[in-house]
Nucleic acid binder design. Structure first.
Lengths: 128, 128
DNA sequence: CAGCATCCCTGAAGATACTG
DNA sequence: CAGTATCTTCAGGGATGCTG
């Protein structure tokens, strides 16, 4: 746990900070996803990174990993109740990014898989 | 600009991501601050890092740098109107961090300089 | 399919010293 | 006071190949 100056912001960062975690979490807001789905939907991530990040999120109690004892193997990941509470943060980030891109970058909006209906996605279970 | 998978979240991250930027921005929510004030209030950051991060934020149009032509030299930093729009994101992060720390880390809340009255701080100028 | 193991590399961040 | 200038370290991340 990294708490350089003891700020609550850093606690959040230590859990969902980094290059990939916010993106992974964002895709999971949609609902549970399989490893390969995440792999495909998040362009550019390596399997190694995806695995590592998912493990860290799992250890922080943010995502839940379910292994189905089948052949071929199937594993899916979903946000835990605690993970759901990150929704406001993630949505705030997305909203800001969209506005910034639109008003300051003059680029088109994010592609469909990112502009997905997250507002109407999974309802918050613990507004904390 | 890093847009690996084109997500709006990444746009936000590219602007306010990293180890120090959120913390710096957080301290600036309070109002304008001098270089040395930030240096002191953010425990553990080096002058070099502080300078670098502030320059990047300045270039992104998030903070404004004001040089006072005096002796001894004085420079202060403040959020621009655009920077103010990050408030919701920052506050959401802090709020989540506080709750997480309280409920899952069983540690005391953040120190005073972080629990500062940011809710009542500078009002949003462009809710975007 | 999901994911480890290995090796490698870059770039973010730190330490320290100096200056207009 | 508010930075620069160097040098160094190291962890985040990439590529590839193998396996239960």
């Amino acid at each position: 746990m990294n708490r350089k100056s003891g700020c609550a912001v850093e606690v959040t960062l230590s859990v969902m900070g980094g290059t990939w975690k916010p993106i992974i979490l964002f895709h999971l807001l949609h609902g549970k996803k399989r490893f390969s789905e995440l792999d495909r939907q998040i362009g550019g991530i390596t399997q190694r990174m995806l695995t590592l990040q998912l493990r860290e999120l799992e250890e922080a109690g943010i995502v839940e990993r379910t292994v189905h004892a089948e052949v071929p193997p199937r594993v899916d990941y979903a946000l835990t109740a605690l993970g759901q509470t990150l929704q406001p943060v993630l949505l705030a980030m997305r909203h800001w990014g969209e506005t910034y891109a639109r008003e300051h970058l003059q680029e088109d909006a994010a592609p469909a898989h990112c502009t997905m209906d997250t507002e109407a996605a999974v309802p918050l279970q613990r507004a904390a």
